[in-house]
Nucleic acid binder design. Structure first.
Lengths: 369, 369
DNA sequence: CTGAAAGCGCTTACAG
DNA sequence: CTGAAAGCGCTTACAG
């Protein structure tokens, strides 16, 4: 070791190693290692002494050394595409918190789902970092190249909200069908009968599930699902706007709209207000996601909160083998584990009973363009 | 070294090491190391041969081994608080991309700015991970405990948009004053004279700078800054709503509002529309941030795009010593480097000239509450 | 231009 | 219950 260039007069930057602790505690490095890893077979007083020295010296084992010598790297990888999604933010937030609690660290990598060498990129990351596990979010969790690279390298992987369940990888998800039913039931219970539904992007798994929930609830209530009220969308604001124009052209308007996500619901809100409709009186609107923007408009949107934080924490637990809250042993079994976490209906001001009595001709509210 | 059994046929799951490459290429591991690290002093054909074998074997050096043996860990840490902020998303996105390009990895850690043991948490992360550098975002980049822990451990650190410049840590920022001037000038050029300004949170550096820019532009245009039109806010939606109520109580309404950030501008928009004002005709609104929500409302907000991605990339470059685009050598000098990156004015539909001609009494538009 | 040796700071078998 | 030895896969000085 050369002369470490000391930045200021303060502390000598020389790092404390396991040997320093061993020497000071009067034990071998193996014993210190045992204490660090909570292994059994150390006398209580020896353990206490070692712990004391560790605290005194502020010793922290080197992740690199542990990783190189042992079987664990204490690194969890999170792969994502589409950075803007509030969904990914939540997952990351939950994962980073759980990782810290467990002494792990989260390495985040943003990858282009359409990159030609995506598999190679994943292989590179995994082989250089040797993470103890990987967490994949949509749409990466359904990308065959990503999945193959991870499978080939035998990296433990957890999928968050995947479209398809896999035999070899556990997954964590919410119940989209049931959640969509709940929203629909809310609308029904408020007295709505002509309820429009705006579909999500066709290539995303959640889209079909949410529509399924909508239809299920409508049927259960014996309310007709009018074909002209079920409109294609793509999860984007603009498609919500377009869908609204289409809906308002109908002779018989809907009194409520359930959009498959908040961005589209926001589009409905904007377009409807622009046409002079009072929300929720003339048109009740519900979204899905509880995105940040959903509470930054007036009226704030009724929506469904996804358990993103909880899903992420569960994913980490599955990876590091921590028993979860419910007592599910987080063992690395080959059986396809699938954890379903509870969602939460967020009722805000964009939904109310249809204002039949106080209904006015739409023209009275129309502003000039 | 025992009998070198050459495994060829079946794909041995054992990871490829530098020795495998060396053997196959007929050179020493040191030469492979040289090639990997782009060190000079390797004959061109030797280098080519090694590179060929590396590709053939899909060899990737172990981050742990490199880190343990050498001076670099190839890990960059990103510390953040307030996960919801679109700002942090952008920074992370830029950092993760730049890291991958440079062969580094981004370790993300979310920390509570008010944690009592924050300094200890930072120390722990740094001493166990030995990152080659850390990136701090507000408000962590101004937290004395964080700064002290990083300084003490001699970890190269770059601050993104800090309130105060430090001698020992370079920073990356945008020009808030100038950006605010630009927005104000846009409003002025549209013909507005009674322009309201909503302040940001008092404890954040950007707040004062943006107000400064507003005042500067107004003075330069010789337009009075009416005291009753400058209102306190805290960067949150609700404060935008409150400010609007206050402004609309005035006998002499403003024709335009410049809110210090988008969340507040969204509050202004919601409150104004609720009062029956036409936006932008009755009231032009401008925000700051180009948040996702800013384009998910009607009318979409005129705002200022922060160079978050570029700031993050610049931060990484400063840390890993890559020459930046502009040719600034990213050396680890002790001099306080301060990079200022260009912002971008985003003009959308929430701003227009004041509709004096078509002005109607506000009462005509007021809806019942 | 190239390589043999030492060692980074831990954990993994083993012994006792 | 505890420890001495070997080795993980690289890079750092050194030699030549």
């Amino acid at each position: 070791m050369g002369t470490p260039r000391t930045p200021l007069a303060a502390p000598p930057a020389a790092t404390t190693t396991i040997s320093d602790v061993a020497k000071r505690a009067g034990v071998s490095i193996k014993t210190v290692s045992r204490v660090m890893n909570n292994e059994p077979g150390v006398r209580a007083d020896t353990r206490a002494k070692v712990l004391e020295v560790i605290a005194e010296l502020r010793y922290r084992p080197s992740q690199s050394a542990r990783s190189l010598a042992g079987a664990r790297s204490f690194l969890i990888g999170l792969l994502y595409f589409d950075p803007s999604a509030a969904f990914v933010s939540g997952v990351q937030q939950g994962a980073t918190m759980r990782c810290r609690e467990a002494g792990y660290h989260l390495v985040v990598e943003s990858m282009d789902n359409d990159a030609h060498d995506l598999g190679e990129q994943v292989h590179r990351m995994v082989s250089t970092l040797r993470p103890d596990g990987m967490i994949l979010t949509p749409p990466l969790c359904d990308n065959p190249h990503v999945l193959k690279a991870l499978h080939d390298s035998a990296t433990p992987t957890v999928l968050v909200s995947p479209a398809r369940q896999r035999k070899d990888m556990p997954s964590v998800r919410m119940d989209d069908v049931h959640a969509a039913e709940e929203i629909t039931n809310l609308l029904l219970s408020l007295g709505h009968r002509r309820i429009a539904f705006i579909r999500g992007a066709a290539d995303q798994a959640a889209s079909a599930l949410r529509e399924q929930g909508f239809v299920k609830a409508m049927k259960a209530a014996r309310v007709e699902v009018a074909p002209e009220l079920v409109i294609d969308g793509d999860f984007r604001f603009e498609s919500g706007v377009a869908a609204t124009h289409q809906l308002l052209k109908l002779r018989h308007h809907p009194t409520a709209v359930f959009a498959s996500n908040d961005d589209m619901a926001l589009g409905v809100l904007a377009a409807a207000q622009r046409q002079g409709l009072a929300i929720p009186g003339d048109l009740a609107i519900a979204g899905f996601d509880d995105s940040p923007a959903s509470s930054l408009v007036w009226p704030p949107l009724t929506t469904m909160r996804q358990p993103t934080l909880a899903m992420a924490r569960a994913a980490v637990d599955l990876l590091i083998g921590t028993p979860t809250v419910e007592g599910t042993p987080g063992t690395r079994t080959t059986a396809a584990i699938q954890r379903v976490l509870p969602h939460e209906l967020i009722v805000r001001d964009s939904t109310s009973a249809p204002a039949r009595a106080t209904r006015r001709p739409a023209g009275a509210w129309r502003q000039e363009e």
